[in-house]
Design a binder for these strands. Sequence first.
DNA 1: ATGGAAATGAAAATCATTTTCATTTGTGCT
DNA 2: AGCACAAATGAAAATGATTTTCATTTCCAT
Lengths: 121, 121
Amino acid sequence: MSRSNPRVLAILERAGGFASAQEVYRLMQREGESIGLTTVYRSLQSLVNDKIVDVLRREDGEAIYRLCGGAHHHHLVCKGCGETIEIEGGAIEKWAKTMAQEFGFREVGHTAEIFGLCPKC
Amino acid sequence: MSRSNPRVLAILERAGGFASAQEVYRLMQREGESIGLTTVYRSLQSLVNDKIVDVLRREDGEAIYRLCGGAHHHHLVCKGCGETIEIEGGAIEKWAKTMAQEFGFREVGHTAEIFGLCPKC
DNA sequence: ATGGAAATGAAAATCATTTTCATTTGTGCT
DNA sequence: AGCACAAATGAAAATGATTTTCATTTCCAT
Ligand SMILES: [Zn+2]
Ligand SMILES: [Zn+2]
Ligand SMILES: [Zn+2]
Ligand SMILES: [Zn+2]
């Protein structure tokens, strides 16, 4: 699971930072790269494990993979063109901690995304 | 899409407030209710349209349906037993608005969930 | 060069969800 | 009651993403 990773990663970059497994596969085909769909899935999974890419879900449930800096952060996503901006959690970091504490939850994590239309769309 | 809705809704209540379509179906079977899987899907969809239930995604992408009060709110979910607590967004609401504004986004919405282990788990 | 481990990919298997379509049910009218 | 027509239902097939299987290929160390 090593020779393919860089190739998949390169495509993901060229795709604008995010794409589904199927899309990565189609893109690679179109560019004449030789790779199997299975390997695309495996590479993406491996990149997720290494925390090099981030995975989340489209509305329809399809997983999309996204290049991602290492530190904890959140996203501002354009519903129109898909552009993704990494943003700081700011106030919600504390909010999440406080809420969890209030109800006695342990091993807490959180997700938070903002979506809308970017200036261009 | 009317005779089934109340039955599906009743099951969802008895299930603790949330379940996937497949789970609702299995539960109804087990309780001797006569209903088709297709109808379960359709009823849930209809309940979502009427904003009586809320739909979101499990980690694995399966859609789960959840009884839900009408007002805007967020959730604190137990990874162990699935218990869900509705909570206020508090600081998040302003955070989302501010962030969106800063980048010139319009028609903004947001999602935020906290997950962890509840006191019982 | 040789053997074994890791990586690959085609094809089959899974699984949730949607679509199709024929049948059943409900409702209003005569 | 008898009839007509629309809405609701559900079984079975289709779809589509993801995973599993398994035989083959590629690496790498000896
Ligand atoms: Zn945009
Ligand atoms: Zn955060
Ligand atoms: Zn719990
Ligand atoms: Zn909110």
